[in-house]
């Protein structure tokens, strides 16, 4: 009756995996065909991009009909893009901004999430509302004033300027960490206070290590959003040597003289390489993080 490879059932009060035979139903074949079709549609464009980055392309256009395997394998596109554009510098900038984002954002968020979850002090509710309000006001509509503030602080074209506005508000991560912290026992704080530990130390030494799962989840989502962010880094890091990989790439693909086809492919491949490596090694984890947070870039 069951179509599930394993169902959970209770034996002596313990959950046990019971393997049942899968009864094949005709609808499954239809489902698999459609699922595979969707997977092929998802894979083809990326495959084409990678294949063409290794192809010898002598013109500004890609070969038509499309090739899905390089006939004349070459690293030439990669050396061209590395010599003629600042892609390596762009990648470095992106890495620095992303690392900064993760560190600042998660440190600030985990501390604030802890305080909002475990703290007892007057004005907690209004302060929480003040911080969460930045989730209601999208970053996009505050673009110009924020840029003016960053400029007035002399932080435009600095890595710090790229990270600061996002990290100092961090509302979403604060909210997620607060929710996680709510399920941690209050008694740890009480006993630490009795032992005379300061609140900050309690946070750092007792609660922070317990937040592992949520911090890992938010690290994954923060890395993905900040690596792929285009609008803000493009505005604040506008000097060519400061551009992140996304804005560097968009400059390359949008340039009016028409970039060399193989070069754009190679540059695109380089831009997705770091996240792809992370994705391959942590795929299951990333799927879980997305399901848990619902975050969307």
């Amino acid at each position: 009756m069951s179509k599930h490879t394993h169902t959970l059932s209770l034996v002596n009060g313990q959950k046990v995996k019971v393997h049942e035979r899968v009864h094949f139903r005709p609808y499954m074949l239809v489902f698999y065909i459609l699922l595979v079709l969707a997977a092929v549609i998802v894979i083809i464009p990326v495959w084409w991009m990678v294949a063409n980055s290794f192809e010898t392309i002598k013109s500004y256009a890609f070969p038509n009909p499309p090739k899905f395997w390089p006939e004349n394998f070459t690293w030439n596109n990669y050396s061209l893009v590395m010599m003629n554009t600042n892609i390596v510098g762009n990648l470095k900038n992106s890495a620095i901004v992303t690392a900064q984002d993760v560190l600042f954002n998660l440190f600030i968020a985990s501390m604030a999430g802890f305080v909002f979850s475990k703290g007892r002090f007057p004005g907690k509710q209004p302060l929480l509302l003040l911080i969460l309000s930045s989730m209601m006001v999208p970053f996009e509509i505050k673009l110009m004033p924020i840029y003016q503030i960053i400029q007035a602080m002399g932080l435009n074209n600095t890595y710090l300027g790229a990270s600061l506005p996002g990290c100092l508000t961090a509302a979403f991560n604060i909210f997620m960490i607060k929710k996680f912290c709510d399920d941690l026992p209050d008694e740890l704080l009480e006993s630490a206070t009795v032992d005379g530990a300061s609140k900050f130390r309690t946070f750092l030494q007792i609660y922070l290590p317990l937040m592992g799962p949520i911090i890992a989840t938010l690290t994954v989502t923060t890395v993905m959003t900040s690596w792929n962010d285009l609008l803000w880094p493009m505005i604040v890091l506008s000097r060519d040597e400061m551009r992140t990989v996304q804005s560097g790439l968009s400059q390359l693909t949008n340039s009016s003289f028409g970039p060399h086809a193989g070069m754009t492919c190679a540059a695109s491949c380089l831009s997705i390489l770091p996240l792809t490596v992370i994705f391959i090694f942590m795929q299951k984890y990333i799927v879980q993080s997305v399901a848990a947070t619902g975050i969307k870039q």
Partner: peptide, 25 residues
């Protein structure tokens, strides 16, 4: 899980790279 992973993959590909490919296709 294999299907889920494949479907999620485009999320990590930046929109700039995606646009380059789609402009060709």
């Amino acid at each position: 899980n294999a299907f889920k992973t494949i479907y999620l993959f485009p999320m990590i590909v930046s929109i700039v790279a995606v646009s380059m490919v789609f402009k060709f296709i």
